[in-house]
Write a protein that binds this DNA or RNA. Sequence first.
DNA 1: TTCCTGACAATGC
DNA 2: AGCATTGCCAGGA
Length: 119
Amino acid sequence: MTRVPSKPITAADAYPLIFAVIRRIPRGKVASYAQIAYAAGLPGRARMVGRALADAGGAGPKLPWHRVINAQGRIALPRSSEAYVEQKSRLIAEGVLFEGDRVSFTRYGWKRGSAPVLD
DNA sequence: TTCCTGACAATGC
DNA sequence: AGCATTGCCAGGA
């Protein structure tokens, strides 16, 4: 049979998976791009998660895109952009506090299936 | 098809 | 704690 080396993952295939994962992030929690990619069965495709959100561009109101931040705990957008302010305020509104310009994964990181951190 | 870009990330200094 | 480098992978020109 005509052999196919590996399945080239296209946006059409991946986006639904990615969005599905993002929709599972609980309110008041955050997840990194890499974490979402992994959970969506796309390990190593962190950049694709970013692309998916960029393409969505707020097109999916149901999507809690603001709960997605980079591995450094920072918002992956220019400080000067509108989206940055929007994302930060949304997070704060959910009780996610910033330490300077970053969020603590230890406190707000989404750990699938684990109990909330009560400190 | 090559080259450049990007809501990323791990590593090294 | 930053900053630069390198790896990564899909899109778009």
